[in-house]
Nucleic acid binder design. Structure first.
Length: 271
DNA sequence: CATCGGACCTGTTAGC
DNA sequence: TGCTAACAGGTCCGAT
């Protein structure tokens, strides 16, 4: 489900419900997510006040008044919603954080590829180290892509989805960005010119920023914390449209697996 | 180091 | 209609 726009949509939906609220209790129904939920979540979080809800890459951080943070990743199927405390619990509702507002923050994740971890005060969690720049920040540009790609033989799509290069770009937005920039996803990263990487960086930035304004992409089940779907799906140019006509030139869109991920592109517009 | 394949887990959909 | 296989928005890990 979640790439940067969906995680950012989640963050924006959560913030007004969480910031300034105190956690009054934690219910762990299934601690065996991608990694076990550490004891601190159940032991230390109750009583803390949440000061900020932040996003780094596809991770969310709930910063507390003690300086520590709960660190969340939604994996492929994770969802966070703020619900009335008496909302019936479903099969995949793994964690509740009860709030002093009387509501609960509920973490739901059928596939359990997501995680809920703990970042002690004054530390940066290991998973957050080594990440590339935020694509919507000034640290990300075509020159960086050009420099880091020299000598690389992997497909440019795989390169773009590497979170050490730039964060937040997953399978949907990689496909859309490459289409907008006119670059074939199969091209070796090391053989894309500086000029074309400048176009790609611009495309990534524009598409992610726009997708956020649409509330992200809902393919099957993404909902923001208030239960609303995203509307960017209606504007996808290539993702999920293999065999259909290219929106720019009408050529049938090609579909193939690249780096184990389904990929779609226009063989005429993208070289 | 870079790259590739496999693994994690469940639900939905395509195909026979 | 029913069963089975393939596939899904992510990313870590080990082998090469």
């Amino acid at each position: 489900m979640p790439e940067l726009p969906e995680v950012e949509t989640t963050r924006r939906g959560l913030a007004p419900h969480l910031e300034g609220r105190r956690v009054t209790g934690v219910v762990l129904r299934r601690p065996d997510l991608r990694w076990p939920i550490p004891a601190e979540v159940g032991r230390d979080l109750p009583g803390r006040r949440i000061e900020a809800v932040r996003r780094r890459a596809k991770y969310l951080l709930l910063d507390t008044d003690a300086g520590d943070s709960a660190l969340l990743h939604l994996g492929m199927s994770g969802m966070l919603r703020v619900l009335p405390a008496d909302t019936p619990v479903g099969t995949h509702d793994h964690v509740d954080l009860a709030l002093d507002s009387g509501r609960v923050l509920r973490f739901t994740d059928p596939r359990r590829f997501g995680c809920l971890l703990w970042q002690p005060a004054g530390t940066t969690h290991e998973l957050l180290q080594g990440l590339g720049p935020e694509p919507l920040s000034g640290d990300f540009d075509g020159d960086r892509l050009y420099r880091l790609s020299r000598g690389r033989s992997a497909p440019v799509k795989t390169f773009l989805m590497d979170q050490r290069i730039v964060v937040g770009v997953g399978n949907i937005y990689a496909a859309e960005s490459l289409f907008r920039a006119g670059i074939s996803p199969l091209r070796a990263a090391g053989k894309v010119s500086r000029e074309r990487y400048v176009a790609l960086a611009g495309a990534v930035r524009e598409i992610l920023a726009y997708a956020i304004t649409r509330g992200g992409t809902t393919l099957r089940d993404f909902l923001d914390p208030d239960g609303a779907p995203g509307y960017f799906e209606q504007e996808l140019a290539v993702y999920g449209r293999g065999g259909l006509p290219c929106p720019a030139c009408g050529t049938a869109l090609r579909e193939a697996s690249i780096g184990q991920r389904a990929s779609v592109w226009c063989p005429r517009c993208q070289r």
